[in-house]
Amino acid sequence: MDLITPGIGLVFWTTLSFLIVLFILSKAAWKPMLKALKEREENIDGALAEAEKARQEMASLQSDNEKLLKEAREERDRMLTEARDTHGTIVGKAKGDAKAEADRLIAGAREEIRSEKRAAQTEIKNMVAQLSIEIAEKVIKERLSNDEKQKALVNSLIEDLNLN
């Protein structure tokens, strides 16, 4: 029966010592300990969050880099194409210009040749006409050198007239 009857002395001492332990250890041990543990937990959480943030930043930086690289590549390609195009245009234009100039020169030369030829022809024609007139004059002079001849001519002319 003694075993299950609480004694007043032990109740008193247990209450007293438990309360003293609770008070002193709460102040001197648990409070600094729990505070430090909480701070450590927060610290670790913060560090983890920061690491995650840094990781995300790294990832975004990397993707930025890739984007930049891609853009640079596209820019280069575009520039190359443009240069090629420009080159083609310039060369084509130069060719065209050269051809046009040559054509113009050739056409000019032809025109000159033609006009020179025409001038020469005119000159030749004039010369031929002069010579013809001179020859005709000489022939006429020779043919009308006596009366008979003049009579014969007039007759022939009259004959022609009659026929008409």
């Binding site: 010592s17 003293i20 332990v21 041990a29 648990w30 300990m33 505070k35």
Partner: peptide
């Protein structure tokens, strides 16, 4: 109780000295 004081106050000193 004496053991508890010795142990836990000694343990708590660590945090005063070395922080977290």
């Amino acid at each position: 109780v004496f053991m508890m004081f010795m142990l836990f106050i000694a343990a708590a000193k660590h945090y005063k000295k070395h922080g977290i």
